[in-house]
Simulated assay, not measured.
Amino acid sequence: MTTLQRDSRTGGPVQGPPARGRAGSRLLSAERRSRWDVKFSPYLYISPFFVLFAVVGVFPLLYTAYVSVHDWDLLGGQGAFVGLDNFARVLEDRYFWNALRNTLSIFLLSSVPQILIAIWLAFLLDTHLRARTFWRMSILVPFVVAPVAVSLIFGNLFGDRYGLVNEILQVVGLDAVRWHVDTLPSHLAIATMVNWRWTGYNALIFLAAMQAIPRDVYEAADIDGASKFRQFLHITVPMLRPTIIFIVITSTIGGLQIFAEPRLFDNAGLGGSDRQYQTVTMYLWELGWRVRDLGTAASVAWLLFLIIIVFALVNLVLTLRIATSGGPR
């Protein structure tokens, strides 16, 4: 069936398009819009993350790279283009290498015990303890305490003259330790603060992963006569491998950027009288806010970013080897 229309000039009938043709075109257009919706709507849903990441992540990173190749004063603003001179100045500065050594030392002293203790705590919380909910909530309390409060409390606990730790050492017949003067003791004190704050948080992550392990695996091990310790070594730890890798990567990124704990460990804020526990981020802060040399501070930030990338790539290689082989080759 066709639809007749009148020509406005001649008044005669005009053959219009078939009704079914218009309905078919509308249906085709709707199907086309549906295909476009299915194809592009997922990108629209995740676009807020990428927009936010571009604003607060990519732009500051690129702008810091731009600042790092200029002579940039905190008050005077942008100066002349200097190329890689800021990077060369940093690499020739002994304070930078001292800060890097301190950062790696504190990172190792905090991350390794932190992961081991977190796995052990998670294993205890996964057993049939009384008031398990209470203990699971209590280990998260250190994480919600402000880093400033943690640093102030532990700074007094590890006081050189009137600290509680030195008082206990003297009671048992040991000499007092100069926590704020000697290098290794100061690193141990700062690592203790980091461990106290983050161990419970990591333990809850390990606990969630342990609860995802099928219980029938442990029941079969019990039937075979395996002890709890052997079950932990041969069942729990291998099945926690992806979670362990995740914790290692996140603790590495966070450990290399440590700032609040060493910054508040003393009142000077430079990392000790001889910079014995000054970290890279503290060195960056000193260049940017005390020396007011934003160009050099930006170059330090980029060097730290590259160091973190190197550690992340090493972790990625180890992750791929473990994932493809089921264990270290």
Rank of each mutant, 00 (worst) to 15 (best):
V148W: 05
V148Q: 06
V150R: 02
S151D: 08
S151F: 09
L152P: 00
L152M: 13
L152H: 05
F154L: 14
G155Q: 10
G155K: 09
G155L: 11
G155V: 11
N156H: 04
L157W: 10
L157R: 01
L157A: 06
D160I: 03
Y162Q: 14
L164W: 12
V165A: 00
V165I: 13
V165S: 00
V165R: 01
N166C: 03
N166L: 01
I168R: 06
I168Y: 12
V171D: 00
G173S: 07
G173Q: 02
D175T: 00
V177M: 08
H180E: 02
D182T: 08
P185R: 02
S186H: 08
L188W: 11
L188E: 10
L188F: 15
A189N: 09
A189E: 13
I190E: 08
I190Q: 08
I190W: 07
A191V: 09
T192P: 13
T192N: 08
V194A: 15
V194W: 06
R197V: 04
W198M: 00
W198Y: 10
T199H: 05
G200A: 06
A203Q: 07
L204D: 03
I205N: 11
L207N: 11
A209I: 13
Q211A: 15
P214T: 04
P214K: 04
R215I: 09
R215W: 04
D216A: 03
D216R: 06
V217E: 08
E219F: 02
A221Y: 01
A221F: 01
D224A: 01
D224G: 01
A226F: 02
A226N: 02
S227R: 02
S227D: 01
K228F: 04
F229D: 07
Q231M: 08
L233N: 03
H234Q: 13
T236Y: 06
V237K: 01
M239K: 06
L240R: 03
P242I: 12
T243G: 00
T243M: 12
I244S: 10
I244F: 14
F246G: 10
F246K: 12
I247N: 14
I247Y: 05
I249G: 10
T250M: 15
T250V: 15
S251E: 14
T252G: 15
G254F: 09
G254N: 11
G255F: 05
Q257A: 11
Q257H: 06
I258Q: 12
A260Y: 02
A260R: 03
A260V: 12
P262W: 14
P262Y: 13
L264T: 03
F265S: 04
D266N: 14
G269W: 06
G269A: 06
